[in-house]
């Protein structure tokens, strides 16, 4: 191991899995503090409800996603949003990817 070599950043294992990365990327497109209905998110990501639930639970355990059960009129609704922590983790992850592609580039 040489001293001069810049250390490559580690990629957040919670985000760095194809399906969860897609979920987080989609949620990152929402404006801050906006929530999206579970079925709509599922439709956008083309995932089965079971599959999406599993990944959301993982992200929720990491504190990256908040899942809220509420009512819209009389019908129950499940709303999903990225937490501040999740948004930050996603930004860090993207910055880490850029550094991996071009280690010379200073992470901004």
């Amino acid at each position: 191991m040489t001293v001069d070599e810049p250390t490559l950043p580690d990629l957040d294992p919670v985000i760095h899995a194809q399906a969860r990365l897609r979920v987080v990327a989609a949620l990152s497109q929402l404006n801050r503090d906006d929530r999206i209905a579970f079925p709509r998110l599922q439709e956008i990501l083309r995932m089965t409800p079971g599959n999406l639930s599993v990944h959301l639970r993982k992200l929720e355990e990491a504190g990256y996603v908040e899942v809220t059960k509420t009512h819209r009129g009389r019908t129950p609704a499940t709303l999903v949003q990225l937490t501040r922590r999740g948004r930050f983790a996603f930004e860090e992850y993207v910055a880490a990817l850029r550094t991996l592609i071009d280690p010379g580039e200073e992470p901004s």
């Binding site: 194809q18 897609r22 990327a25 592609i101």
Partner: peptide, 19 residues
């Protein structure tokens, strides 16, 4: 890393279109 960045771009664009 570059595949991951591509995936992010695609998914964000797709979500933007849908909403």
């Amino acid at each position: 890393p570059s595949e991951a960045l591509d995936l992010i771009r695609q998914e964000r664009a797709n979500t933007g279109r849908a909403l």
